[in-house]
Computed example of a mutant assay.
Amino acid sequence: MPEPTSRALPAWSEFQRRMRRYVGGRVEPAWADDVTGDIFLRLLQRQDSLAEARDPLAWTYRVAANVIADHHRRRSVERRTLEQLGAEARAPDPGSNGGDHEALRRDLEACLLPFALELPPKYAEALLLTYFEELSQVEAARRLGLSVSGMKSRVQRARAMLKRQLMDCCDFELDRRGAVIDMRPREAGRDGSAAG
Rank of each mutant, 00 (worst) to 15 (best):
A188E: 13
A126S: 13
L108Q: 14
H72C: 04
M151Y: 02
F132P: 00
R80G: 08
E83F: 04
L128S: 04
Y131L: 10
R184T: 01
R142E: 12
A8V: 10
P92H: 05
R79M: 04
R164M: 09
A103R: 09
K163D: 14
E28H: 04
L117A: 14
Y123H: 15
P92G: 01
A158Y: 05
R21L: 14
A179W: 11
D175V: 06
I68D: 06
E109G: 12
P4C: 00
D107G: 12
D70C: 03
L41V: 12
M19I: 08
T36F: 11
E3Q: 13
E52R: 14
E187S: 08
R176G: 08
G24I: 07
D70I: 10
S153L: 15
P94W: 11
A65I: 13
W59R: 06
P92R: 03
L41K: 10
R17T: 13
H101R: 15
Q137F: 07
P2A: 05
W12K: 13
R79A: 09
M167K: 04
Y131P: 02
R157Q: 11
A126W: 09
A158H: 09
L43Y: 02
C170A: 12
D182L: 02
Q45L: 08
I39G: 02
E125H: 10
L146I: 04
L144T: 09
L144Q: 11
Y61W: 08
R17F: 09
E134F: 01
R176V: 10
V180M: 07
L41M: 12
W12A: 13
H72E: 10
L41A: 15
T81R: 06
P185G: 03
H71Q: 12
E102K: 12
H101V: 15
M19V: 08
R62K: 09
E118A: 15
R176H: 10
L117S: 14
A110D: 05
G37F: 10
A58C: 00
H72Y: 05
R177L: 15
S6N: 01
E78D: 05
P56R: 11
V148C: 02
R62D: 02
R154P: 00
S49F: 11
R186I: 00
V67E: 07
R190A: 15
H72D: 07
R186N: 01
F115P: 01
E125N: 12
E187H: 09
M161D: 06
Q137Y: 08
E78G: 03
L174T: 01
R106D: 01
R80S: 10
L82S: 02
Q165W: 14
D34Y: 15
C170Y: 09
E173D: 05
R164G: 03
P120Q: 14
R159Y: 11
M151R: 00
A91C: 04
L162E: 03
V63Q: 05
R154V: 06
V23S: 04
K152L: 08
